[in-house]
Design a binder for these strands. Structure first.
Lengths: 140, 140
DNA sequence: TGATTTGTTAGACAAAGTCCAAACATTGGC
DNA sequence: GCCAATGTTTGGACTTTGTCTAACAAATCA
């Protein structure tokens, strides 16, 4: 487990460490993700950030998440055709995806080996490997 | 490799074999997928089916693909947040996903072993395992 | 035949995400 | 302090994927 209690100041440092200018909105969005360590959709992030008084526009939420993605601060998780999840865990890991509840559970990739994969097409390079195990309650 | 040259009559039989009433539209949609053995989006399927004279509505394309999915005649492949691909190969397999071209390449799952996965959460059952290897041309 | 079920359709609708020009900081130079 | 330059945010229009609905058509069956 990593550090558990992040402050907004930690976020500013984190952003700077990734070459991102830490504005108020960016700090709030980062804080939403990192303080919960959960997989959130853009929608959910917007709801969290604008909980009390509306502060941050839709455009900024999307801009910021794309910026974070570009700087490898968060990762996109694509498991549901209807929405993308953003994952503050950028270490190598895979996912259980609970089809009933929509919940995502991390699987540390260091424990997992995948064998017997064919060679990559020539001239190609691996950008990332996603393993998604879709699960559901027994006896549905 | 499987049988290569499907006819529309083959499609009617295939549909019946899966408990689906083979209507004209359903046969055309199945034929689009199975005769090419490619991963197609709903959009692409609609374009193929309506190539000459418009025959099939958007609603029918989506209805039909969902019906096929329900009867395990095709499989959804979720790799791109912007669209779902439909895959006529329902055998166990994984995918290379070319991030640059959007192309999907099948990987036979019989050759692949995955080790070191943690136990499923209690009361849960595996519905499917997707491995997606995102690739791109070297030296971009 | 009429009644019921099954399929198809156009078009309205919804939701996720992008785009853009205008407005708004924030910074550094003077 | 003022000014420009740069970077950021914003609302709203827009696009795209997909769903829904109500009407219509075709087949089934009694």
């Amino acid at each position: 487990m990593e550090k558990q209690h992040y402050t907004r100041d930690d976020m500013a440092g984190l952003l700077r460490g990734h070459g991102i200018n830490p504005t108020h909105q960016r700090i709030e969005i980062a804080y939403a993700l990192f303080s919960r360590q959960e997989h959130l959709s853009a929608d959910q992030i917007m709801a969290i950030v604008n909980d009390r008084h509306s502060e941050t526009s839709k455009a900024t939420v999307y801009n910021t998440l794309n910026l974070f993605k570009l700087h490898k601060l968060v990762r996109e998780v694509i498991v549901d055709p209807s929405k993308v999840f953003y994952d503050p865990n950028t270490g190598p890991h895979h996912h259980f995806y609970n089809l009933q509840s929509g919940e995502l559970i991390d699987i540390d990739a260091r424990d997992v080996q995948i064998q017997g994969l064919p060679a990559l097409p020539t001239g190609m390079v691996t950008e990332g490997v996603d393993v998604i195990i879709r699960i559901r309650p027994q006896h549905t």
